[in-house]
Design a protein around this nucleic acid. Structure first.
Length: 333
DNA sequence: ATTGCGGTTCGGTACCCCGG
DNA sequence: CCGGGGTACCGAACCGCAAT
């Protein structure tokens, strides 16, 4: 009590810190001489007292993590000891080291998640995203990637250790938090089909639903060899999702006849095909493909100027050059 | 001193449903 | 279709007891 700001009733009588304190105090004052006597006098179980004695045996590195030693219950000690025996002390210590938790103070729950290695998962996801903390904090929480980054950043910094707590702190719905984290964990080969801005909650949730329905393996195999938005201009999220769902699959023979011919008037081409509706959904892709063809014959001044600028300029100024569609990529033929 | 086990409590997540 | 609220379920924390 003396050392605590809180009223006694709020401190668990199983608080190891307090228990060992009381025990040694009583021993010094001669209230008891054996642990057995102390048990009766203090009204605690032998197991609790034993664990309370163990508390001080724990490595400093771990004890230092707690913001308030009063919180440490016999169960907490037990879990930590169990983890150390199961995973090895060096593993646990390196978790603390790697999670960068030393120095700072944490809630009981957070300490357990650090010791058990759960906090490291967030650290890993954070590293994968490769964004620096200030950027993450300043970003709008509209895209799943941003929310996921923010969540994992919070975990590693001890701001929260659950979706719910994170949602409350950022005043966004907890569902968005959990979905965002799940969406961000989809394999790169799937996520990278979409441009960053197009990788929305809506798209992500549909992918998650698809993953539930097909299983990850099937989804991955369907995603192979699909054109990404970076590979081919004019791709829409809707089309990519539709392709992943294998919608409207039909024999290639039904599309054998595709003709482009001159239409009425000076500015028209007409495309003849089966199922123009389906093809119409790809009009942006088709348009861009056609304009790519056009460029082969267009030599207007601006265009030449542009080419000079690009090839006469050091790369770093055009960092995204290699992600653009293959317009400027030398063809191997 | 250590460990296991059956049980309860509590908080978080996943899921469903509904209204906008 | 989207997001928010409600809720059933699940797992972690916790407790008490007891064997070794």
């Amino acid at each position: 009590m003396r050392n605590s700001k809180r009223p006694y009733r709020l401190i668990s009588r199983r608080s190891c810190w307090r228990l060992s304190q009381l025990y040694h105090q009583g021993l010094a004052e001669g209230k008891w001489t054996t642990q057995l006597d102390a048990l009766n006098a203090l009204g605690v179980s032998q197991g609790d007292l034993s664990l309370a004695m163990q508390l001080h045996e724990l490595p400093e590195k771990i004890l230092d993590l707690f913001e308030d030693h009063i919180d440490i219950s016999s169960h907490t000690v037990r879990v930590i000891r169990h983890t150390i025996r199961r995973d090895g002390l060096s593993t646990v210590l390196s978790r603390i080291e790697r999670s960068g938790a030393s120095g700072a103070k944490h809630s009981k729950k957070t300490v357990l998640s650090i010791v058990k290695g759960q906090a490291l998962e967030s650290k890993k996801m954070l590293r994968l995203s490769g964004q620096d903390p200030e950027k993450i904090v300043s970003r709008a929480l509209d895209l799943p990637n941003n929310v996921s980054d923010r969540y994992h950043l919070g975990v590693t910094q001890g701001e929260w250790n659950s979706f719910s707590a994170c949602a409350k702190a950022l005043s966004i719905s907890r569902r968005n938090v959990s979905d965002a984290v799940a969406i961000r964990q989809l394999p790169d080969s799937i996520r990278h089909l979409f441009r960053e801005k197009e990788f929305t909650f809506s798209v992500g949730r549909k992918l998650l639903a698809l993953k539930r329905e097909l299983g990850l393996d099937e989804l991955l195999s369907r995603a192979r060899y699909k054109d990404s938005m970076y590979d081919v201009g004019g791709r829409t999220a809707e089309n990519i999702l539709s392709e992943l769902k294998d919608e409207n699959i039909r024999p290639a023979s039904s599309f054998r006849r595709i003709r482009i011919k001159k239409g009425r008037g000076p500015n028209r081409l007409v495309i003849e095909c089966k199922d123009p509706k389906l093809l119409l959904r790809y009009r942006r892709e088709i348009e861009q493909a056609i304009s790519k063809v056009l460029k082969k014959r267009v030599t207007d001044v601006e265009y030449v100027e542009l080419m000079r600028e690009i090839f006469g300029t050091p790369r770093p100024i055009m960092p995204r050059l290699d992600r653009l569609p293959g317009t400027f990529r030398p063809r191997l033929s």
